Amino acid sequence: MDISGNTIFIPGATSGIGLALALALRDRGNTVIVGGRRTELLDEIAAAHPDLDTVSIDTTDPASIATAAETVLARHPDLNVLVAMAGVMRVEDWRSPETFLASAEEVVTTNVLGPIRLIGAFVEHLTKRPDATIVTVSSGLGFVPLRVTPSYNASKAAIHMLSESIRLQLAETGVRVVELVPPAVRTGLLPGQETSEFAMPLDEFVAEVVSLLETRPDATEIQVERVKFLRHAEARGDYDQVVATLNAADPHAAT
């Protein structure tokens, strides 16, 4: 995707990677709309960054997605980039069904159904734009599992294959599909992750992502250097060693 001159909607951008990416893309000359379900955070963002538009959206609720899409397209009919950023991560113990079922359902609803519904709400509009992009967000853990987060790992593997598949279907349209593959980043995704030495500083991650978007405009995956240890483990032939290393390390070693 071109790094400037776009109109970009990023649901799930009231904090963490989403907000940092929204600000970085705004600084590169894009019109950016931030979405989130916590209205108090949207109000704070609007006050601190009046050049960002904000839209209330709960990506676990199909009706909220439909309403938000209608609002975004009414305000920004030139929208040409959707970044399906919203996601949650939960530590689960699958030896105790009463402790993991509700968590697993929440993760799948947010991380898999959320992006599917978002893409469904915008894809018809995007196919009518001359140059459009859908950005999905998977994870290094979609390629190598972290023992304590089974549903999250599975959800991100699903997003990877979804991205691969819809890219094939949209190949004859003007819509590109770009998969962002983060490593662990210092955000509040899990308790303690914001200060974890195993996680990549947020500003460094976003700066590298923006640089990759600029220097590799035709890339189908955006992989910072820190995620390649996980992303290419199977291809390198050291998958078992990478699984062991990851799971012997800090629980925030990758997200």
Rank of each mutant, 00 (worst) to 15 (best):
S138M: 09
P145V: 03
A157W: 05
S139Q: 03
G140F: 00
S139T: 03
S151R: 05
A157M: 10
V144Q: 01
S151Y: 02
L141Q: 13
G140K: 06
I134R: 05
T133G: 06
S138W: 05
P150Y: 09
P145C: 02
T133Y: 00
D131L: 07
S139H: 02
G142A: 13
A132L: 03
V137P: 02
I159R: 09
V135D: 04
T136P: 00
A157L: 10
V135A: 10
V148P: 00
G142N: 00
A154D: 08
R147Y: 02
R147T: 15
V144R: 02
S138E: 09
K156T: 09
D131E: 10
S155M: 08
K156N: 07
T136W: 04
P145I: 10
L141Y: 03
V148Y: 06
V144Y: 00
G142L: 11
G142V: 11
A132N: 01
V144L: 01
V137E: 04
R147M: 11
I134Q: 04
T149I: 15
V137R: 13
T133S: 13
I134L: 12
A158S: 12
L141H: 03
Y152D: 05
P145Y: 02
A158L: 10
I159Y: 05
T136I: 12
V135I: 15
V135M: 15
T149S: 15
V135W: 02
V148T: 15
F143M: 12
G140M: 08
K156V: 12
T136R: 12
G140W: 00
A158F: 07
P145T: 09
S155Q: 04
H160S: 15
